[in-house]
């Protein structure tokens, strides 16, 4: 491979990874925008998503690495798996909010954040106890069609990831910008008190935010499984932390920012793997996080809110 093709190949890989991080980062950013809460349970909603997707695919008989379906049945199976995963994860997010976070609403300090760490631990360890600590094979049902640009190649399933992510992100953006509930979300993010006084049902807005964010995390979990062909109870931590970095990089609370940040983190990870060594990828990403927070705390697209005194 020529150096240029190598670079191109890593850009292709980075965009695929980045789409996944972007979907995951959106969940952080929506919830943070409305509640100013870093939701660590999001890490493992993503992990659960990969298991749900694996379960649904296996109901269709899709197991292991062999290609068992083609054409319309495959598309139907994938769409059903995606929808079920997203709804299941969305409901899990709503449940977490209702049970563990709503009682803490209005409590100051790191209390709510500590609770989400606890919830995250419960999710991952309960999964481990129920399904075992070993790594599971995630099915690879998409036929290995490839397209070539020079010697760099794009696989069919990378294109599936791109299209899927673009549709989901576009849908979310339209929802937030155009729908009445989306407008209520934006209003609550800017000023919860004023929104409340204008008749916005804050509980409903927060539940919607958790549902949407968690559903996107489920989609990201599905993509993770397709991309890496494995899953286990521990995948949430690293991916979640990178996605959170993406949200901060783009400007936390800012929806286009999370998308941009996710793509950038995916590219950085792919480049680091190629040119520096995969084992240093996290060091580079977290160092970048620290640098961004120091140099531009509001992120690339975010704007700092005026300080209240």
């Amino acid at each position: 491979m020529s150096p240029f093709d190598l670079l191109l190949q890593q850009i292709i890989n980075g965009l695929s990874l980045g789409s996944m991080y972007a979907l995951l980062a959106l969940g952080f950013t929506i919830v943070y925008g409305i509640m100013e809460l870093i939701n660590f349970s999001h890490f493992n909603v993503f992990m659960i998503g990969s298991f749900v997707a694996m379960g649904v695919l296996s109901l269709f008989g899709l197991q292991g690495q062999s290609i068992l379906m083609h054409g319309a049945p495959l598309v139907v199976a994938l769409i059903v798996a995606l929808v079920v995963t997203m709804v299941a994860c969305g409901l899990l997010g709503v449940l977490i909010e209702r049970v563990a976070l709503r009682p803490l609403r209005g409590v100051q300090g790191p209390m709510a954040m500590i609770t989400t760490i606890g919830v995250s631990y419960v999710l991952s360890n309960a999964t481990m106890l129920a399904l075992g600590a070993n790594t599971k094979n995630f099915p690879n049902p998409i036929p290995p069609m490839t397209f070539h640009i020079g010697t760099a190649q794009i696989t069919a399933f990378q294109i599936v990831i791109w299209v899927l992510s673009a549709l989901l992100m576009g849908g979310l953006y339209m929802f937030v910008q155009r729908s009445k509930l989306g407008k209520a979300m934006r209003a609550t993010a800017q000023d919860p008190d004023a929104a409340l006084m204008m008749g916005v049902e804050v509980n409903r807005v927060i539940m919607t935010a958790f549902f949407l964010g968690s559903a996107l995390a489920g989609a990201a979990g599905f993509i993770f499984g397709l991309y890496y062909n494995f899953t286990n109870f521990g995948i949430g931590f690293t991916a979640g932390l990178r996605a959170f970095t993406a949200a901060v990089l783009g400007g936390i609370g800012n929806i286009p920012g999370a998308m941009l940040g996710g793509i950038l983190i995916g590219l950085i990870e792919a480049m680091a793997g190629q040119y520096v060594g995969a084992k240093w990828a996290d060091v580079i990403i977290f160092s970048l996080l620290v640098l961004v927070l120091i140099a531009r705390p509001a992120g690339l697209l975010g704007r700092l809110a005026p300080t209240k005194s």
């Binding site: 100013e36 809460l37 970095t245 060091v283 990403i285 977290f286 996080l289 620290v290 120091i294 705390p297």
Partner: peptide, 23 residues
């Protein structure tokens, strides 16, 4: 460099730092 950040950012920066050291 990180302590002038808001408290919740600090949590995530320390988390990142806590990952870097074992790596």
């Amino acid at each position: 460099p990180t302590l002038r950040l808001r408290g919740d950012y600090l949590a995530i920066v320390t988390l990142g730092f806590g990952e870097i050291v074992p790596i």
